[in-house]
Design a protein around this nucleic acid. Structure first.
Lengths: 214, 214
DNA sequence: CGGATGGTTCGGCCGATACCGAATTGTCGC
DNA sequence: GCGACAATTCGGTATCGGCCGAACCATCCG
């Protein structure tokens, strides 16, 4: 259920019960504990109660657990379903893009010297700041006169880094805003539109050598 | 037991059993599982088996869990023992310094514009690179011609950031090398020597306003 | 070799917890 | 007010897992 909520979107207890293959009462019990432990927050909208990850700190924790878990189990049995492929191709990771797409964007930005990523963190270069501003990201809002940082997030499917933190969240937001990507319903998976494919290639220099077109 | 191993030093199963207040067989069982899950590694030296955290990735995961846990329980009952005070004053966090000392060092380096720390990461400035080189840290070894990064680590006792990553590890190593700090036996706590107190003040500009002298 | 020490395996006990079905509460719309 | 739908609470069961004492294995030392 926590993994499902890492998509960043709020889900109801019924949806989470279905996703976890457990009964509604069981899900309700677990969710109650998670809220009590302040890992999740719940908000009542109409008749439904929507659960979401409580904070970026919690998201970061889950992210790091997943990164370790992905190494521990080196593809034990390979489900390799269509849904699995979609997730590997592109998905949201709390508030930014991950999967093949996320890594490809990170690679393109690194290749063009717009950002620098190491296993200890990341930073935006001066050229990168100019580029991202032109791309439609308001850096001034967060930078407060100093250098802007982004964060590296280890991708469990690609085993490589993608862009997280403020920059990662803004890239995700902007791609969405431009209609380059759309959400798949009831999934963390993300679909790239035809416009998006062209935009990613021409604007960011992203090469999507995946055949996945779901 | 994992928390104890976050001191960075290797411990035997008997020591870990004592620290966790459980019997040796119980500890042995848990440690076996942790090794099987590749969270720990074990090395046989003489008659003893020494357990340590398997990788920096695992350390980072435990770190982020602790950061969340520290927020969840806002000082429920305040043990406030002497040992607890010692930990709050200065301790090791896998491979770098934490506690009041760790935060004070980070503050001093930030104030002198040697490093920049945000909630998304950290970086060393040009002036910082010169200073740290003079302090006895070989930056070339890791930087490989590019900018050097450090990492911010949320301190559970101080609720503020201290320096982690390569730079954090090197500062810790160098302070040790200079005889500024010493290990307390069977604890993550770190003691600052008289020389160290003077050195930290004169060289790094660290003000230790703590009264703790254990 | 025999005693001491560090460590693991085995067997059994017991509390904790996941889980579900049935019943209950609460909210919405007619 | 009354079905419908979402969600939780309750009661009960089965299982899991932590824990320990006792026994066993390995290593070191005199």
């Amino acid at each position: 259920m926590l993994a499902a909520l890492m998509s960043g979107q709020a889900l109801t207890s019924s949806e989470l019960a279905t996703l976890a293959h457990i009964s509604r009462p069981t899900a309700s019990g677990h969710l109650g504990k998670l809220v009590a432990a302040r890992l999740l927050t719940v908000s009542q909208k109409r008749r439904n109660r929507y659960y979401r990850i409580a904070s970026p700190l919690v998201a970061k924790m889950l992210e790091s657990i997943k990164a370790v878990a992905a190494i521990e189990t080196p593809a034990r049995h390979r489900p390799h379903s269509a849904q699995d492929d979609a997730l590997r191709f592109a998905r949201t990771c709390y508030d930014h893009l991950a999967g093949g797409l996320g890594v490809a964007i990170a690679d393109a930005l690194v290749a063009r010297r717009f950002i620098v990523l190491t296993d200890e963190g990341g930073a935006v270069t001066a050229a990168g700041a100019r580029f991202l501003t032109k791309f439609g990201i308001d850096l001034a809002r967060k930078s407060a006169g100093r250098r802007i940082f982004c964060r590296a997030c280890l991708d469990w499917s690609e085993r490589r880094y993608h862009v997280a933190g403020f920059i990662g969240a803004e890239i995700w937001r902007r791609c969405f805003e431009l209609g380059w990507i759309t959400r798949q319903r009831d999934s963390r998976a993300v679909r790239v539109t035809t416009t998006g494919r062209r935009g990613l290639r021409d604007t960011l220099g992203v090469k999507l050598n995946f055949e996945h077109r779901s």
